[in-house]
Design a binder for these strands. Sequence first.
DNA 1: ATGCTCTACGTAAGCGCTTGCGTGATGACG
DNA 2: CGTCATCACGCAAGCGCTTACGTAGAGCAT
Lengths: 345, 345
Amino acid sequence: MGKKPVLNMADLAERAGVSMASVSRALSGAPGVSEATRTRIRTLAQDLSYTVSPDAARLARGSNGRIAVVTPDVAHWFYASMLDGIVTALHDSELDVLLYEVQEERERRRFFDELPARRQVDALVLIALPISDDERSRLDLMGVPVVMAGGTLGDHPHVRIDDAAAAHQAAAHLVGVGHERIAMINATGHWTLEYAAPSERLHGFTRALHDAALPLDPELVVTERWGSGGGAEAMSRLLGLSRPPTAVVAFSDEMAFGALRTLRRAALRVPQDMSVVGIDDHSVADMLDLTTVQQPVVEQGRVAGLLVREVVEHGAARSPYVTLPTHVVVRGTTAPPPPAPGALG
Amino acid sequence: MGKKPVLNMADLAERAGVSMASVSRALSGAPGVSEATRTRIRTLAQDLSYTVSPDAARLARGSNGRIAVVTPDVAHWFYASMLDGIVTALHDSELDVLLYEVQEERERRRFFDELPARRQVDALVLIALPISDDERSRLDLMGVPVVMAGGTLGDHPHVRIDDAAAAHQAAAHLVGVGHERIAMINATGHWTLEYAAPSERLHGFTRALHDAALPLDPELVVTERWGSGGGAEAMSRLLGLSRPPTAVVAFSDEMAFGALRTLRRAALRVPQDMSVVGIDDHSVADMLDLTTVQQPVVEQGRVAGLLVREVVEHGAARSPYVTLPTHVVVRGTTAPPPPAPGALG
DNA sequence: ATGCTCTACGTAAGCGCTTGCGTGATGACG
DNA sequence: CGTCATCACGCAAGCGCTTACGTAGAGCAT
């Protein structure tokens, strides 16, 4: 009857003819064992395929080895790429990742009320998740450092892009090829909480027009819900205008995709009749030949991963605020505007 | 000096004027405390925002509350959708998810050698990860149940689609609209280990031709590496043939996208000059108007999540082998073949 | 030899919980 | 009014580790 199902440290110690203390030290790399003993124990552990129980170790030591990543949507291109960067950066560390998806309001509430990650992790990485003040104070209860990937959160470490600059680049590109009547398709969040990106990008857009001494026609700024459906809808509205634009900056590639769909259905040619530029450089943008402002998403995740490692390992990050650059990728959806009807040339 | 940084159960018990045992029982829902006491303790815990330490609980109880999900690529559409289904299915359970990405060979080896998830989880979900026999025996060392999502693995519980049937449906659709010279673009894995899908899909394809009494021209089966690049390459080879096909079944939508790109660059019209059908119903397929065989990816993940819950909670799943249906989604990339050069009609 | 410092190792006290078992109180029953 | 379940609860023994502290022996200088 009854051997333990799995070998524990006491068993190993016995077989090695030493105390548990030595085993623990040998395996963890702590000083206080001779090299000979250490090697012997390690070899034995290997042979018996023994592993220290992370839970027991963590309990005895008080915290270690795990972080939580919180994402609004596991499957969405943007968040998934971020997550990819984060786990990649963590690959050669000892940190494991506990994954939480807080998509709907219900899960959101559950996450902040119950704090399921509480006492389980050494740090938290939030992927582009706007947070209310109440929620921030709940987070503080967890008593662990937080880093924000793809946005900002108080004075917690973060990585992000300059949204205003990105939109500015998009609009400036259109100005550069000769457009004067440029629209912006902006996004509105699906939660009560607003992301900062929409207003930032609108500012950048506005500033670009201003810099080019172009008037800003309020009709040409349309806001729809986030996603390609919203983009399609927004483009319909723009086409319905008495004086439609000749080019449009979309809040994101996804919205640009929707806009392109509307244009195709309306039998308008891109870029001859209408230029479109997105923001993101979504993996599909290349396939659809969409001109866009590229932002390094995986890289943002990677930096977030490095930040969280620093924070966990050294208590703080050396340079906790990182803004990564964006740049225009010219493809086939932008060109000079068609000659104005009744124009001289 | 020295209060504990965080409230523990002993503190709570003291403040509540009861023993730890009662607190534990009250909080965990175990019998042996009166309703009155239970409520009182719970309220107090709430007020003090106390949470049981999952690690200590797990240690004392011997295992509980966490599963590992292993995916080849966090960011890839297919795996990300699977993962989404899994975490969604786990949302209203008490299970947390530990995420492991084993992308490159190095990480793969590390994962199977070190078994970082070992002693940390109650079960393992593998997302479409082909596994060698050696690796399987390593996995057995973990001593926890394994479920496979998007494939099979010995007699472990699994969810998947019928790959042969999917390819059969794709080819049959093309036969149905009148094609007789149909190619297949097949995929080859990027690892040494082969997925089962390519050969299965090839079988389904072959069988469909056979069922329609069409000859199978070996020239028309081309295999390229997985991904849209491979699809593009494969299509080039097909176009180089002395007698090119009039239609093609691609291993996946991604490969179909590549094929479409090649066709566009070759100035061939789709579907007038060439019909293309993919498999997956990738989120972008709709955007590119690609006819495809839809497979329920998120749903497969969801089912995998349910399976793992059953396995963890009841020790076994009631029906551990699930095959989900696929079906053709007709869009704009398939049409009858062009009239044969020199044909009578 | 004596005394001292090091090093390698063992002892044992926790870490924060769960749970089998024991106990007194309570109520049912004859 | 005695007898026995039953129930609510406390006691204390772990769960599998880490680590402060203690100790024996080796090495060295005196």
